[in-house]
């Protein structure tokens, strides 16, 4: 195969969004290394369709949707289930703790216990600041489902956090 020169407008578009994408991926999968893999997958898929995707109305939403789909699809794999079981509560990739890290780590552990679509709904609504309708579009479900998933997710987080001693 001839050497391929990357489309420059793709590099320009994504170069300022890697951190943003990585953080969303981290909230979805609660592991930085796994987040890198998810983000890498999303960028690869975006580049595969870049000649036509570059004219999408909202490229940020487009890229985020690819990421969320990659995450949800991955959760159906048996390997992911094994990793989650093993990783829950094991927080090895944080070399330092910020001043408020205990609370954040509690939340991270609690997030890990949410079902994938509930977690995605919470992250999209409250971290990405999307409306119910926008979240529904990105998760390909109805606004009512988003409302119920979000409510259940937040309720579950509250219950988990109340029952959990500080790390």
């Amino acid at each position: 195969m001839a050497e391929h020169t990357p489309d420059r407008d793709f590099i320009e578009f994504v170069s300022g969004r890697v951190l943003w994408l990585r953080r969303i991926a981290f909230l979805l999968c609660e592991d930085w290394h796994h987040a890198d893999d998810l983000a890498q997958t999303a960028l690869t898929k975006l580049y595969a369709v870049w000649p036509k995707a570059r004219s999408a109305d909202n490229l940020d939403a487009y890229l985020r949707t690819i990421l969320v789909n990659a995450y949800i699809n991955e959760t159906r794999r048996p390997l992911w289930k094994r990793l989650v079981t093993a990783d829950t509560g094991v927080l090895l990739d944080l070399p330092e703790r910020a001043p408020d890290s205990d609370a954040a780590l509690d939340l991270r552990a609690a997030l890990a216990k949410l079902p994938p679509r509930q977690r995605a709904a919470v992250v999209l609504r409250y971290y990405c600041d999307l409306s119910v309708e926008q979240t529904a579009a990105e998760l390909n479900c109805s606004p009512g489902t988003v409302k119920s998933q979000t409510a259940r997710g937040l309720d579950a987080l509250r219950r988990i956090l109340q029952a959990q001693p500080s790390l």
Partner: peptide, 28 residues
């Protein structure tokens, strides 16, 4: 709270834009 969670110290990223381009091109 979610924002604070993402601002915890994180390891260096391994995301490689140019690998994404190469792999994405093959997929294309």
């Amino acid at each position: 709270q979610l924002t604070a969670l993402t601002e915890l110290a994180a390891p260096d990223t391994t995301i490689d834009l140019y690998k994404a381009c190469d792999d994405g091109y093959r997929l294309r």
